[in-house]
């Protein structure tokens, strides 16, 4: 009897989203198969992409071996970003940490002006993360959106407390939103429903939070996995968005990563690979050697050709 390899074909399709404009663009998502299920009917046209993270202030709690690759540029975010390009990042993720009232409480204007300058100097698309304080972000992120009008940045986190004000600024100024919810698929869908009442779903990327290995990665894994299953298998429009896994910061605050260099690289690398298998489309890392390690593990982009 002839053996026929079973093949699944699904009806859902993750929206393909472009970040940046002109020469510096990046496509993510677009798949209609579950992550890496190349044996099924369908495509995953865009490989997972990797951003390296830049802070807008000198990091205070990084171990020396994490600062080392950036040592000569660490007090200049723009040079730091250029260094990330040299290291092979597909995008730069600028974290506006200094705007946090608990840090330097940098003003929205000052933060926006840094983003604008970085935009003119780097050749890779930009992701901009606010400090995470919903109130401060609702002042800083709209200002960033305005000053960089039309540049199609990926901006977040847009949270349930500030989605109206931040989401509207993203809509009016032509950017893409990072919709962030705290490790809960029901809340994730609810925020997307609310956001998509005025923002086209083609302009939303999901950030379900990325917990590090040993610190709750199972939760992040399950949620990403379910987002993809529900989107691709049951065609739920409100989960058919690409996923960003902002994992570098989570990994490098663990005791284990800070303890020893190779352990740190593996901590970040294994977290990245795991979340990639769960369905992350865009991953934010901190250490350039992790980026190299993860890319080697994937075997270049061979599986996507």
């Amino acid at each position: 009897m002839e053996f026929k390899v079973p093949k699944e074909a699904y009806t859902g399709n993750v929206r393909e989203i472009v970040i940046g404009k002109g020469e510096k663009t990046l496509k993510i998502g677009g798949e209609n198969i579950l992550p890496l299920h190349f044996f099924d009917d369908g495509v995953q046209p865009n490989p997972p992409r990797f951003a390296l993270e830049v802070l807008d202030m000198v990091p205070q709690d990084w171990p020396d071996f994490l600062k080392e690759p950036y040592l000569d540029v660490i007090s200049d975010p723009i040079k730091w970003a250029k260094k990330c390009e040299e290291y092979g990042a597909d995008a730069i993720s600028l974290m506006l940490l200094s705007t946090d009232p608990a840090e330097k409480d940098t003003s929205p204007d000052e933060a926006a002006s840094l983003v604008k300058r970085m935009l003119s100097e780097v050749r890779k698309p930009l992701i901009v993360y606010g400090c995470g304080d919903e109130k401060k972000d609702s002042e800083v992120l709209p200002r960033v959106a305005e000053v960089c009008k039309g540049e199609n940045l990926l901006i977040g986190p847009v949270q349930k407390e500030n989605y109206e004000i931040v989401g509207k600024a993203i809509l009016e100024n032509g950017h893409v939103a990072i919709a962030q919810t705290p490790l809960d698929i029901n809340l994730l869908k609810e925020l997307n429903i609310k956001l998509c009442k005025f923002l086209p779903p083609e302009r939303v990327v999901i950030d379900p939070l990325s917990s590090a290995l040993g610190y709750g990665i199972e939760y992040s894994f399950s949620i990403m996995e379910r987002v993809k299953q529900i989107g691709i298998i049951t065609k739920d429009s409100m989960t058919m968005m690409p996923i960003i896994a902002n994992l570098g910061g989570e990994c490098w605050k663990t005791k284990q990563a800070k303890e020893e260099k190779n352990q740190g690289l593996l901590w970040e690398g294994i977290t990245a690979i795991a979340l990639l298998l769960a369905g992350a489309n865009l991953l934010v890392l901190r250490h350039p050697e992790t980026l190299k390690l993860v890319k080697e593990t994937l075997g270049g982009n061979k599986i996507w050709n």
Binding site: N186, L187, L188, K189, I193, K194, T234, M238, T239
Partner: peptide, 8 residues
Amino acid sequence: GETLYSDA
């Protein structure tokens, strides 16, 4: 169980 639950 046809559509994922959310408060919305």
